[in-house]
Write a protein that binds this DNA or RNA. Sequence first.
DNA 1: CAACAATTGTTGTCGTCAACAACAATCTTC
DNA 2: GAAGATTGTTGTTGACGACAACAATTGTTG
Lengths: 177, 177
Amino acid sequence: MAGNSQMPKTAKSRAGLQPRFGRKQAGNGRSQGDVMDDEIALDALAGHAGYAVRRFQIWIFQDFIRTLGAVDIRPTQYSVLTVIGANPGLSQMAVAKRLGIERARLVHLLDSLEQRELVSRLRSATDRRSHALHLTARGRTALAQFRRLAAEHERHVAEKIGKENRERLLQILSAFT
Amino acid sequence: MAGNSQMPKTAKSRAGLQPRFGRKQAGNGRSQGDVMDDEIALDALAGHAGYAVRRFQIWIFQDFIRTLGAVDIRPTQYSVLTVIGANPGLSQMAVAKRLGIERARLVHLLDSLEQRELVSRLRSATDRRSHALHLTARGRTALAQFRRLAAEHERHVAEKIGKENRERLLQILSAFT
DNA sequence: CAACAATTGTTGTCGTCAACAACAATCTTC
DNA sequence: GAAGATTGTTGTTGACGACAACAATTGTTG
């Protein structure tokens, strides 16, 4: 869950969903389908939380990916690093459960993170089935940088919906974290 | 955008993300990774809007899929039907742009919807490149039922986060619809 | 009006992600 | 110790977004 979100690899420049005006001044006779975007009624959709949340989530992930683009870290990777950083020694199962990621999926995520030498899988002394996850030294310093960029992303969010709204949002959704 | 969201085909019964207690009373000596979920710190993640939004979006889509499971309608399909129903005669381009779906993706969505005889693609009289999208009679009555189920889903959302919070959320995110 | 550019629907490819299923190695439990 | 559960792993399926290319059909412009 923390993961998902199929974002564009190439972050789109057009950040937004701002209403677009203009485009062919609304003439008299408009044929089928020839309607300006803004005029297209959403109908019941406008009252659906899921629709709004979905579009917001897309925007926010795109901005995250763009903002952390230079360091090539996606939201899921960031969430994994953060949890491991805050809880060294966790098993893959524990991380997966905490973040709502499938353990099958976490395998690949960790493969990549381990290849980049940000995370290391140590064999657990007490349970030889499981791995104890740790950040490498490199991972720790890298995460510090990621955090700064993530904070910048969070400022973008605040700019987009308003500082107070962002906090209200976090409060409303606190049960889901 | 309206689309995306890879949901489980088989809606999970456990709706939630409620904190789970218990599981092996926290003994004294806990080894690596042997930590109760609730104790695992999220650290910076807790302050990230994207993380909360993502988990909420997953919950909400799962509930939508489960609630509309009997009629086999997913969020994206519902959004397409709603927009076509509210704006008969729209071209595929117009629908795609309005919902933020790729037109390539909409092709498949409409193929499925047309096969189920909920939507029909009529050749536009004015632009022979494009299709004028309409709901079939069957589609209109079906959509009415979908709407009732979607309203039920929306009530689940209200139960989950609170009636007032849901409305506050819709207001905060209104710019994204 | 004819050449060129843009749009529309379509097909296909690639990459991300969630859900499952199966498996070997390793605990746990009875 | 045998049966059952858990952990990490691999592989498959399906929804989805991004892209690229294409034919058919406008539009635009010299």
